[in-house]
Design a protein around this nucleic acid. Structure first.
Length: 354
DNA sequence: AAAGTCCACAACCGCTCCCCA
DNA sequence: TTGGGGAGCGGTTGTGGACTT
C-alpha cells in the first residue's frame, strides 16, 4: 500500500527552523489547535510541510516539554523501560513526563548505549557481554578510567590500584566465562597461558573442569558481592579515605546504595526482569570502576573481596579449594603486564574461532 | 591560532499503522 | 473488504559547537 510522500511539493523549506517560523507555528496552534497537520502550514502561513510542523511542535515547541539534562532517575527508568520495551521510544516517552521520544532516542544513542557498553552490558539484550572484540576494546578504557580515578593524595594511589585490580578482575572473569561457554576445551596454548610461567601456582596445569568450577565460583562471588559491598562500603571508605569527612563518605555511599535499591524496587524484587540485576548487581564491579563513584565503590569492594573469601570458605566447603585456587590465581596473575592480557585475549580468540 | 576531529542533537526520510469512505 | 490518506514511529543524516592536535 504505497503512499505519496507528504513533502513532495517543490519549494517547501527544509532544515533548521527560524525563530519567526517557530513563532508563527506556536501562535497558530495556540489559537486554532493543530487540526490537520497537512493543512496547517498553509493556514499558518508557513512554507513547510505538515510533517515538519508536527515534528517541530511535538519535539521542541510544545509547552509541556521538559528541557535540560536527564536525571539519574530518568536514566534508570529509560534503561529499565528499554529492557522491557526495546526501541519503542514513544512508549518509553509516555512514562517520562515532559520528554519526547526523539529526545529519549537521541539520549539513548549518544549516552546510555555507551554507558552500558562501558559497563560491559549489551545495550540490546541488557545482558553482560562476552563478545571478545568488545571486551578487548574495553580494556584500554577500563584501565584508563581506573587510572583517572583520583588525584587527591596518597590514598588515591591505593584507590587507583584497587579500581584497576577490580576492572581486570572483571575482565578475567569474563574471559573465564568465555572459555567455559565455548563448549570445547581450550587449546593447550591458552591453558598454558593461564598456567604457564607467568601464571600463578594455582592455575598452573589446571584442567577445563577446574576452569568451569572457577567460573562458577567467580560468578557467585560477583553476583553476591553487591550486598557485601553495601554492607562494608561505609567502613571501607572510611578507612581508605580518611581525608574525607564522614558526611562526604555517607553522601557517596548513599548515592550509590540508593541507585542499587531503586533498581531493585523497579525490578519488583524478585521479578523475572533481570535487567537491573544485570546492570547493578552482576556488573557492579565494572560499573563501580567506571562511574563517578568508582573510587568509593572500589575501596569498598576491596574490603568486600575479603568477605567474599570468607563467604566462599564458610558457605561451600566443597568449593573451598577451587575458590581459593581462583583467588590465589588472580592474586598471582600479573595484570599490569599488558602483554599478559594481549596473549590471553589472542589465545582465547583463537579458541572461539575454532 | 588554525585545521581537523568528535559529539550531540535537531530534523528529515521512509515505513507502518489506523481510520474511514 | 479494500485502498487512500493522515498520523506516528524508528532509523538515519546534517550541522554546529566543543574539543584536540
Amino acid at each position: 500500500m504505497g503512499r505519496s510522500p507528504c513533502c513532495d511539493e517543490v519549494g517547501v523549506k527544509k532544515g533548521p527552523w527560524t525563530p519567526e517560523e517557530d513563532k508563527k507555528l506556536v501562535d497558530y496552534i495556540r489559537e486554532n489547535g493543530h487540526g490537520s497537520w497537512r493543512n496547517l502550514p498553509k493556514s499558518a502561513g508557513l512554507n513547510r510541510c505538515g510533517k515538519s510542523c508536527r515534528l517541530r511542535w511535538t519535539n521542541y515547541l510544545r509547552p509541556d516539554i521538559k528541557r535540560g539534562k536527564f536525571t539519574e532517575d530518568e536514566e534508570r527508568l529509560i534503561i529499565h523501560l528499554h529492557s522491557v520495551l526495546g526501541n519503542k521510544w514513544s512508549a518509553i516517552a509516555t512514562r517520562l513526563a515532559g520528554r519526547t521520544d526523539n529526545e529519549i532516542k537521541n539520549y539513548w544513542n549518544t549516552h546510555l548505549k555507551k554507558k552500558l557498553l562501558l559497563m560491559g552490558i549489551d545495550p540490546v539484550t541488557h545482558r553482560r557481554r562476552t563478545d571478545l572484540d568488545i571486551l578487548a576494546s574495553s580494556i584500554p578504557g577500563l584501565l584508563a578510567a581506573s587510572a583517572n580515578l583520583g588525584s587527591w593524595d596518597a590514598n588515591a594511589l591505593r584507590l587507583q590500584a584497587d579500581a584497576a585490580h577490580l576492572a581486570k578482575f572483571q575482565i578475567f572473569q569474563s574471559l573465564v566465562q568465555l572459555v567455559s561457554s565455548a563448549g570445547t576445551p581450550p587449546p593447550m596454548e591458552a591453558m598454558s597461558l593461564l598456567g604457564g610461567t607467568s601464571a600463578p601456582a594455582g592455575l598452573r596445569g589446571c584442567q577445563l573442569g577446574d576452569v568451569l568450577q572457577m567460573n562458577r565460583q567467580l560468578e557467585a562471588v560477583l553476583n553476591g558481592s553487591l550486598g557485601l559491598a553495601q554492607d562494608s562500603m561505609a567502613a571501607a571508605t572510611a578507612s581508605a579515605l580518611p581525608s574525607l569527612t564522614n558526611m562526604e563518605l555517607l553522601d557517596s555511599f548513599h548515592t550509590y546504595s540508593d541507585r542499587v535499591i531503586a533498581a531493585e524496587q523497579l525490578n519488583g524484587g524478585d521479578g523475572p526482569d533481570e535487567v537491573n540485576h544485570n546492570i547493578y548487581s552482576s556488573t557492579g564491579h565494572l560499573a563501580a570502576a567506571n562511574s563517578t563513584l568508582s573510587s568509593v565503590s572500589a575501596a569498598a569492594a576491596t574490603a568486600a573481596d575479603d568477605q567474599m573469601m570468607e563467604r566462599i570458605n564458610s558457605t561451600d566447603a566443597s568449593a573451598n579449594s577451587s575458590a581459593s585456587t581462583a583467588f590465589e590465581a588472580w592474586e598471582g596473575l600479573n595484570p599490569d603486564d599488558d602483554l599478559c592480557w594481549k596473549n590471553i585475549l589472542d589465545q582465547i580468540s583463537w579458541t572461539n574461532t575454532q
